[in-house]
Design a protein around this nucleic acid. Structure first.
Length: 570
DNA sequence: GCCGTTTTCGGCCCGACTGTTTTCAGTCG
């Protein structure tokens, strides 16, 4: 699947044209095309082949011609030509905060700046101050931007940022005495990775709130502080933005600050087509504000059903909300159990009884123990003997702990040759068989897809664990043809997992959406190695919501009885 | 480059903050 490659080309093309100072709207179109292709769940080649690609808003004939050319020749002429027109490392400078395309273009033409290195050298010189609009303060800011660029680690996972963001909000509440402070931005949309923390506060007197924000102990640098908004950098390199608004515009401001940017642009365009204007200050008809206090109010006046934050990515939610076709999204309360938890029998750190009690405390009906199988030595995989002992222990815990059903399971390895790490008569005894790949990540797409297919076709396998193997920011997905996997899973009734561990979230939102479109049932599981990790179920559910899933799509939204019936495939 | 029950040409989201300005350009979200 070449979606990412093609999206990257359009993105880089946009960068180059922007630096060259081409018309903004053409640049913007390429950016949008890049995002759309990146967000596609289906193979772009299939969509081009069938012609369906032209049904997507924002993709026109010019784009399709470019994609076809790339699919046929492996290159795109307009990109190759653009690439030759500016120095190789120049576009990279767009990643320096505070440095934009206009300045980069200017520095390149006037001073032959073509890399971070030559940029630094130029900034140290005196001549740069002769440029129009350039002063000592600007030079200083660009230098600071370079330091940030060189030190920052990229986007962090939601699971690591979320606690810090909530703590900051709590601190701000104490410092300001204001209750209505909340996290917006990509955190409120529950995106899997986070670039910065956006906070919205409701107050008619912003000055003291801005002051308290810029004086928080974690703040190492104040980037900007005005009368209604401020930006700071905190100790781990992360940026935090605060916006303070009065009650009458809180809903509109929350929408604006929650994004995504693409979603906002869509809504503002929609408002425009109705002769209205939407901004963070409300929805306006002429000079008159007709909505703004609540998100629901603004969306209703735009003719929309309420769009949950998780859906606000401009992936069709606006169209669906206009026609009343948004799905009733799954909620955390719909989840009846966790179907992938490790115990101290393998590499987990909690006893089976602790897992049972933690699951009961979460209000679950059931929880499944799925320790590693014998070949995974590093994780103390269970021998068949140990597996049988564990079965007995589970029976004892079921006696001791009432009000929860502990299911016996395994996370059986899908070995390099496609066979499973336990024999069928062993798997047959268990309630919940999760099959996962933990080795041979480098194999070819055919091989890896084949391994997963043979696991899917094994009648004892109930769920494929973390189907792509990716680790956010660490390890890319292995080469697997998910279309083929999903078709097979739909055929056999095998579920695919949304592994809720914060570095996995695998399936991700887009793949989960594709899975249910193809008729696959999804299991949301935490893969917890300690009872303290079981809260991650919320990350999984939010990912499912981002994938437009309803409780009907979720295996572990079933009651114990219904679940066992599905698992036994009678 | 994309798009269209007011348009096939002429638009394309909207506003805050900063640093350089003497009314605004650049950057960001």
């Amino acid at each position: 699947m070449k979606n990412q490659e093609i999206a990257d080309i359009f993105g880089r093309l946009a960068d180059i044209l922007e630096i060259r100072g081409e018309e903004f709207f053409r640049v913007n179109t390429y950016r949008k095309v890049a995002r759309i292709i990146e967000d596609l769940s289906a193979d772009v080649a299939d969509l081009v082949e069938s012609g369906e690609i032209l049904d997507i808003r924002g993709i026109g004939k010019g784009t399709v011609a470019g994609i076809e050319e790339y699919l046929e020749t492996g290159g795109m002429r307009r990109y190759e030509e653009a690439r030759k027109s500016i120095p190789k490392g120049l576009a990279e400078l767009l990643s320096v905060p505070g440095l934009g395309p206009k300045t980069i273009g200017l520095l390149w033409r006037e001073f032959d700046v073509k890399s971070i290195k030559s940029l630094k050298r130029t900034l140290r010189g005196k001549k740069i101050l002769e440029l129009p609009g350039m002063g000592p303060k600007k030079v200083e800011n660009i230098e600071a931007g370079i330091r940030v660029y060189e030190s920052r680690s990229g986007r962090l996972t939601l699971g690591t940022v979320l606690p810090a963001a909530l703590a900051t909000v709590a601190e701000l509440r104490v410092a300001t005495g204001i209750d209505e402070i909340e996290v917006a931005g990509s955190i409120r949309r529950w995106r899997e990775t986070i670039g910065d923390i956006d906070i919205l506060a409701l107050s008619s007197k912003p000055a003291p709130v801005i002051k308290a924000f810029t004086e928080l102990p974690r703040v190492v640098e104040v980037l900007a502080a005005g009368t209604t908004k401020a930006s700071v950098r905190v100790s781990d390199g992360l940026q935090m933005d605060l916006r303070v608004v009065p009650p009458s515009v809180y809903g509109a401001a929350l929408m604006y600050f929650t994004g995504s940017q693409a979603h906002n642009v869509r809504l503002r365009g929609l408002a425009q087509s109705k002769g209205l204007k939407l901004s963070e200050y409300g929805l306006f008809k002429g000079e008159r504000r007709i909505a703004g206090r609540t998100e629901e109010g603004v969306q209703k006046k735009l003719g929309l059903e309420f769009i949950a934050p998780e859906l606000r990515e401009d992936r069709g939610e606006v169209e669906a909300a206009l026609t009343g076709e948004l799905p009733g999204l799954v909620e955390l309360g719909d989840i009846r159990g966790d179907l992938h938890v490790h115990s101290n029998y393998s590499d987990g750190h909690s006893t089976i009884e602790e897992v049972a009690r933690a699951a009961k405390a979460r209000g679950y009906m059931y929880v499944s123990i799925n320790d590693h199988s014998r070949s995974l030595g590093v994780a103390h995989g269970l021998t068949i003997e140990r597996l049988l002992e564990q079965e007995e222990e589970i029976a004892r815990v079921n006696q001791r702990v009432k009000g929860i059903t502990v299911l016996s399971g395994t996370e059986v390895d899908i070995l390099s040759d496609g066979s499973l790490d336990f024999p069928d008569d062993c798997l047959e005894r268990l309630d919940v068989v999760v099959a996962s790949i933990h080795s041979g990540f480098q194999q070819s797409e055919d091989k890896i897809t084949g391994r997963i297919l043979s696991a899917i076709r094994n009648p004892h396998v109930d769920i494929i664990g973390h189907p792509t193997g990716r680790l956010l920011g660490t390890r890319p997905a292995y080469d697997v043809d998910l279309e083929v996997v999903m078709a097979a899973a739909a055929d056999t009734g095998t579920a695919l997992e949304i592994n809720a561990y914060h570095e996995r979230l695998d399936l991700n939102d887009i793949n989960a959406r594709r899975a249910v479109e193809m008729g696959v049932r999804v299991a949301i599981s935490t893969d917890s190695h300690h009872v303290d990790q079981m809260w991650a179920m919320e990350l999984g559910v939010r990912t499912a919501r981002r994938g437009w899933l309803t409780s009907a799509n979720i295996l572990n939204a079933l009651t114990t009885k219904a679940l066992l019936k599905v698992l036994s495939r009678t």
